[in-house]
Computed example of a mutant assay.
Amino acid sequence: MKFSAICTIATALLPFAYGSVIAERSTSGIATWYSGAVGACSFDGYTLPSGVFGTALGLNLYSNAAQCGACVSISNASGTKITAMIVDECPGGCAGKTFDLFPTAFSSLATPSTGQIPITWDYVKCPITTPFVLRTKTGSSQYWFAIQVYNANQAITKLEVSSDGTTWKTAERQTYNYFLLASGTGTSTVSVRVTAKDGSVITTKNVPTAADQTVTAASNFS
C-alpha cells in the first residue's frame, strides 16, 4: 500500500551533477563477478535504474550496510567505465576483492572467463531523478519500528524519527539495511528525517508505522 507524503528539503551543502565524485579519492581494487542478487541490502523488488549495474561490496567496505544504495564509478585498465549500485555484501573470500559485479557489469569491462581484473573506482552520485522511497519492514508497528530507504541517489548516513515533529530519535542501521527503533514510536504515523552522504536532509511526514507500507518522498537529494 502506498501513502502520499509531505516533505521538506534542506539545501545541500555542496550541490553537484550526476556522476560527480563524492568521495575523497579514487581507489584501486579488484573486480570479480557472480550471479547477482539484491541480497544483504534487502532491496527486494527494486529495479535498478537504466544504465546502472548491480554489485556486491567486499566485506571490508560493506560497513554494516552503510554503503547499500551508494553508486560507484568503476574503470578497467583501458579506461572503460561503468556505474554500479551497491546492493549486496560479498563476505568471506571477497574481503580482499573490492567488488563482486553482476555478470552484465563485469562483461562490460572484461571477458567473463578472465575471472577478475584490476580496477580503479570512486563513489559517485547515482543517476536517479525520481524520488526515493521509504518502506517499513514486515513486523513493523508502533511498538517495533523498522524502515528502509531505497532509490536514493546517494548513500544514506542517518535516519531519524519523530512522533511529534519536534523530538527526534536516531534509528540504528541494521546489517540487513533497515533502520530500527526497537522500542517503537508509540504512534501510528511519524515524521522521518533522512540525511544523505553530502549532508542534504529530507523530512517526510505522515509515514505509517505499520508493516509493509511504502511512502514515496517528494524528491530525491539535490
Rank of each mutant, 00 (worst) to 15 (best):
Q142F: 11
V190H: 02
V133Y: 04
T130V: 15
T157R: 10
D122I: 04
T175V: 13
D164Q: 04
Y143S: 15
S191W: 00
V133M: 11
S188C: 06
P103V: 03
A152S: 13
P127F: 10
Q154S: 06
S183I: 13
V124S: 08
G165A: 10
L134S: 04
Q148K: 11
Y176Q: 04
P112A: 12
N177M: 05
G115W: 01
T136S: 02
G186Y: 10
S162M: 05
T114M: 01
E172F: 09
A105H: 09
T120K: 07
T157L: 07
T130H: 12
L159S: 02
F106Y: 14
T157K: 09
T157V: 05
I117A: 07
Y150N: 08
F99P: 00
I117L: 14
V149Y: 03
S191N: 11
T114R: 07
S108A: 15
T114S: 13
T187L: 08
Q174H: 07
T120Q: 08
Q154G: 06
Q116K: 09
S183W: 10
P131C: 12
A152V: 05
K158D: 14
N177L: 02
I156D: 11
P103H: 06
I156M: 04
A146P: 03
G96Y: 11
Q154P: 04
Y178L: 09
S162D: 03
N151Q: 15
W168P: 03
N151T: 10
Y143A: 14
F102C: 13
T114A: 10
S140Q: 01
I156G: 07
T187K: 04
T111K: 14
T136D: 00
T138G: 11
C126N: 01
Q148N: 08
G139T: 09
L101R: 07
T98Y: 01
L180F: 06
P103M: 05
A182Q: 12
Y178E: 07
T114N: 10
R135E: 15
